[in-house]
Design a protein around this nucleic acid. Sequence first.
RNA 1: CGGAGCGUGGUGUAACGGCUAACAUUUCUGUUUUGGGAACAGAAGACUCCGGGUUCGAAUCCCGGCGCUCCGACCA
Length: 418
Amino acid sequence: MKQSHLFTKTRREAPKDEVSKNAQLLIRAGFIHKEMAGVYSFLPLGLRTLNKIVGIIREEINVIGGEEVYLASLQDKKNWVPTNRWDDAVVDNWFKTHLKNGTELGLGFTHEEPLTAIMKDHIRSFRDLPRAVYQFQTKFRNEERAKSGIMRAREFLMKDLYSFNVDQKVHINFYEQAKQAYVKIFERIGLGAKTYITFASGGSFAKYSHEFQTLTEAGEDTIYIHEGKKIAVNKEVLNDEVLKDLGISRSDLVEKKASEVGNIFSLGTKFSDALGLVFKDVDGINKPVIMGCYGIGPGRVMGTIAEVYSDEKGLIWPESVAPFIVHLIALSNKKAVEGVEDQVKKVADEIYAKFIKRGVEILYDDRDATAGEKFSDSDLIGIPTRYVVSEKTIANGEVEMKDRKTGKVEMVKISDFK
RNA sequence: CGGAGCGUGGUGUAACGGCUAACAUUUCUGUUUUGGGAACAGAAGACUCCGGGUUCGAAUCCCGGCGCUCCGACCA
């Protein structure tokens, strides 16, 4: 894509009402736009990165047998009353509204209830199991206080996967597969080294749930990490029993701030009992389906990456989620005059065409701007590899290649571009 | 939901109760320039969040509303 076709502008300063680093950088670089507290729109660059994250998650969830759906945001009260989650006294962050005829509606903050209701239409027998169904969907949560930029929003995208199994044993097996899929997802996204499988409260159907916590001061959670085992315990559940279960001692743990980028949770029969999701086993006996839920917030992941991978100049995207892989900058020929071909532009155009032909995602800064402005914008946007074509470089038949992360510079022969 | 702070051109800031609301950035024109947000000249852009009140006079003081940020609580 040519940068002259990108409608977003970068800005020198972040709006003063944004304090979190992720939102400041993402706004300055033109990735997102703040609509109001906790509500953000995604602009072209931001959407590209968000879609990269979504794509990685989708691939890995498909590997473990996930079937993708897209459920409604508007929620019917009838599915939520049986689980006692319609009442505002029980769930205090509903966005509720009503139809013109007065019927109450809610904007979904999660989807256990509606999906369980749907599965009732399709699961009759043990032959219909196991199932794993997921979606990427906007969740609405009327948080009392939005904070941390896009890391805790009132409207946000979430990947939520739900599993349906015949018994606890099969469920645990899938749960482990999902856990491994999550490990792979965060590795691919570039957060692997900083992300810990963290033991957290399991609710009424399992001793523990597992959170995926990425170390960052911007996180809201406090966890205790065990570096040797690469696991952690959420502060909420840290006690002697947990330490014993995990075979670790308190002295090996280090307290850290972290951001919960994903979690997996055993639901047991809570929802299947409440909504009547049963199947006939081999003996023809009705049994409740064993469920699990598995969430990842792509927006929060994006914010976490911005927090973890950035410097004073701007963002530094891991290649797997960068909006573009290559940023090509042309510093126009100063002697360019009427009737004389601009050699720098000519070479840059050719290199751009070659990258496009090879299918490389490239942003080409073809704007009529000064070198300093182009470099600053490039650092701010944070594309992994930058190529600079200038009079100086083409004099030697070369192009400069610079790594955004390491700052390492290399000269590449123009003839090497295929 | 408790506590604190803040609302001034698109953005960031300034202005004692008193002149045409200032500066930077931004945008536009032109000249000049091209390896780290260049320089010069000219221009554009604000009912100072909204509504009341005090005053000869309010961006400034008072009351109410709305919005934003931070700390804490909450986060099924």
